[in-house]
Design a protein around this nucleic acid. Sequence first.
RNA 1: GUCCCCAUCGUCUAGAGGCCUAGGACACCUCCCUUUCACGGAGGCGACCGGGGUUCGAAUCCCCGUGGGGACGCCA
Length: 475
Amino acid sequence: MTVRTRFAPSPTGFLHIGGARTALFSWAYAKKHGGKFILRIEDTDVERSTPAAVQAILDGMAWLGLDYDEGPFYQMQRMETYKKVLQTMLDAGTAYYCYCSKEDLETLREQQTLQGLKPRYDGKWRPESGKTLPLIPKDIPPVIRFKNPQTGVVAWDDLVKGRIEIANSEMDDLIIARADGTPTYNFCVVVDDFEMGITQVIRGDDHVNNTPRQINMLMALGATIPQYAHLSMILGDDGQKLSKRHGAVSVMQYHEDGYLKEAVLNYLARLGWSHGDAEVFNMQQFCEWFDLDHITPSAAQFNTEKLNWLNAHYIKEANLDVLAEDIAIRLQSNSLQTNIHAASRTSNLADTPDLKLVLGLYRERANNLNQLAKDIAYFYAKPQVDAAEKQKHMTAEILPILHEFAQQIKEIEWTAENIHNIMNALVAKHQLKFPKLAMPLRVMLTGIAQSPSIDQVMALLGQKETLARIETNLS
RNA sequence: GUCCCCAUCGUCUAGAGGCCUAGGACACCUCCCUUUCACGGAGGCGACCGGGGUUCGAAUCCCCGUGGGGACGCCA
């Protein structure tokens, strides 16, 4: 049988890290088995679903490259189907009308909670042979409930958690259609998973408790029961549960925060799943290796440090053209123009340092795109020179030598090697340690005391700009 | 409260009864490299929640605790 998996988010917010991982695992499972990955938007909660959230989910998946083979399907557009199935169940006696009002239900729940009982429907309108149902009230539009079996157990072999058994006596008759006739979540999922031929349901483990109900409904419909794999949740960096109030951010936020999608993907893949000692791998390898057997059943804590490390790795590995595109945009949002775009070349940026060469010098030391852009900003705008560093490194002793250096580099062919030779010669002549000369240059040229080899920095900065910055600081 | 799930270094994890003196990765520490800061290289620190079983042998299987989490909506 062809594998068919699905990702079924409800559009009530952005695609967060947990949802992204669920999608990633479903996607990878389908890819691994040559199956289909289906996207289904569960938008039956009209109150909370928004088009913006739908778009946010689509954007998030697009950024990560989680492409779907079918969909997106929208449940709100499948009402006819649900109504039809509802009617069949009513006819078959596996569902029934319930005329309890919301208020009745509310007080019932309160009483039960007060008595320390598990809140559940009392079966007032559940038809049984020999039972007389109450008189149907005129002014209350009924909901439809599923007639859940009352004895026996529902069991399934969860692909992540192993065998799970839940007694039917623990479940009540859940509402599958609201008073206004619209179907509810558990029912729509069942109909859709059935009709879409889903073979493996991979979802968050907050759905474990829904599974036995769904299996019961599936059985009532005579459907094949899919396999289930319940993924445990992802905790925040602090070990706390992620929520709207606390720590949950959109995957797109990682893009904004300077992360490469390759790093996010690799990190997420490795969070709760493993392949021996493999830590760094691309999505192709992931899809080849992925299996449900190596998913941890326990919750995993998010670790930004490790994400940073992976990000550093992928920044080093990135295609330089792609990286330059990205960094150019980040620089631009700080009003810094680079010469990467043809349009920019028409301006007076012709002798501005080549971004790709600059990145070649800097990518090794970065673990974040925004930081990288910030670090190289001085190539494209005069830096703010750190006063303390200037005072520390531009000593009276070195000042005349800096003048001498400035003189000498006016004459040379502008290469890092030539610059380096001049520095070496000066240091030797005055019997100084190399940093004595390198540090003040670093401060004058970059504004701070840390940079790659300063001769290479000068080579990229250009002769004119290098001299200009030195002279400004010496005068 | 009831039901369900989970439990290996600080964190992510390897581990399918002997391969475990518990392995890898991030972080941390030390050293090396060095033109500062990074990168990189070499080392180091560091864990089987507790108690009972089963077994010749348990991180692995069972039971009981303990701790964490989830679910109990005309939300999904």
